[in-house]
Every structure is written in C-alpha cells, then in structure tokens.
Amino acid sequence: MPDAGHRILIDRSLADPGAQSVALTTEEEGVALLAGADLGGARGVLLMQSSGTGNCINMLSLIKGGHFPFLSLVSMRGDFGEGNPWQYPMGQAVEPVLQAMGVICLRIERPEEVAPTVAAALTMVFQGGSAVAVLLTQKLLGAKSF
C-alpha cells in the first residue's frame, strides 16, 4: 500500500527484477495474496500503514486457520507525537486487534533495531511458520507534521 514510511522500500521493490510488487486497493487483498503465494511456494511481505491493519482483520482468519506464514511491515500512525486525531483509534488498536487474530507484534523504536528485528521476523515467519507484524513506530519514523 502507498505510504510515506515505506516509500524507499516500495521504490526498491519496484526496481528489483527479483521481486514482484503488487499494488493493492485495500490491505486485506494483501493478506489473501500472500496466502495464495504460499500455496504456490513463494514468499511475500505486506507493506501497510497502521490504519490499514483494521481492514485485514477477518481476512486474517485465513492466515490463522490455514497456518499460513504471514509477514507485514506496519508503519505506525496514531502513536508517539501524532498530530492527526483521526489516526488514534486504529493506531492504538493495532496491537490488540492483530494479537487477537494470532499475529505476533514486534515494535521497533530505534534505527539500530530495524535490521535485526526484521531478520528475526523472517525466521519466525518462514522457518517458524508464524504470523508476524513488525511495527515501525513514530518514535522511529518521526511524526508527520500538520
């Protein structure tokens, strides 16, 4: 999904001939897409903003019930330093609702934690067969100014 926090990663993915990038209209499409990719033996990651996690909830039934591996990188809004009141309800609900659907949440607040946390998530998902969301917090990314 388009997002300022994922901008560089989206650009790199688009430029990488070894990666297939799929632009989505809504985040739940990505959950189903990744399950289908797994049925075919491929791996993927869903890039989205915290506001989109709510759009995924029922589709995560597929992940939990089917024991599909699932990895998402979530750029957070509605937390540290947020100036847009619309972002708080979903931002603050990300962890409880994802955890309720069986997704393990790993929060990152400092730049030096990014690479080891994503490496840990890759192991947890593609060796451990789990569902993991890596939360890129606003303490890490900085809050958008209004």
Partner: peptide, 25 residues
C-alpha cells in the same frame, strides 16, 4: 483445489498470489 469457508472476499486475491507464484500453471 483450495476451497474457502470463511475470509469472504479473498478468493480472487488468493488466486492472483498463486498465479504469480506459479506462471507455469
């Protein structure tokens, strides 16, 4: 075959993921 009994609205996207993963099928 992979049949669903929940997660309504996901069939086409599961199919897309599978089709992209397996262009030979």
């Amino acid at each position: 075959i992979y049949t669903m009994a929940g997660a309504m609205g996901g069939a086409c996207m599961i199919g897309l993921g599978l089709a992209l993963a397996r262009p030979d099928k």
